[in-house]
């Protein structure tokens, strides 16, 4: 049984979430933006697991939600990469500023 306090692990997960948010705000390459989103999803998963372990150890809801989030993250990454490859075929670039056909 780890003896680390819960707030320490929450510090790590919050910091990881805002690192991901920072990457999402600064990057303009679509694949690196996708990587930043994956970091944020991982931070959310850590939060679910920590709350399940430290606060509700008699239930398993956090664990199941983590499994479902990982599954949906895999589906999301696959769809996003399919869209990015299609955009690359059309614009010859994966910069978010270059895909501006819908921009008025």
């Amino acid at each position: 049984m780890p003896e680390v306090k819960m707030t320490y692990i929450l510090f790590v997960s919050f910091a990881l979430f805002f690192i991901g948010a920072y990457g999402f705000l600064t990057r303009r390459n679509m694949i690196t933006m996708l990587m930043a989103v994956e970091l944020m999803l991982n931070a959310v998963n850590i939060n679910f697991v920590v709350f399940n372990k430290y606060l509700y150890a008699d239930k398993a809801d956090g664990l199941f939600f983590t499994i479902f989030i990982i599954t949906i993250a895999a589906a999301e990454a696959a769809v996003a990469i399919a869209i990015i490859i299609n955009i690359y075929r059309k614009f010859r670039s994966i910069d978010a500023e270059d895909a501006d056909t819908l921009k008025w």
Partner: peptide
């Protein structure tokens, strides 16, 4: 699950798409 899906799946997918684009 994290190792199988993320490390084995998503990162490999991202690397593939980097090579493609």
């Amino acid at each position: 699950v994290q190792i199988v899906v993320y490390v084995g799946g998503i990162v490999v997918l991202i690397l593939f798409s980097l090579f493609l684009t």
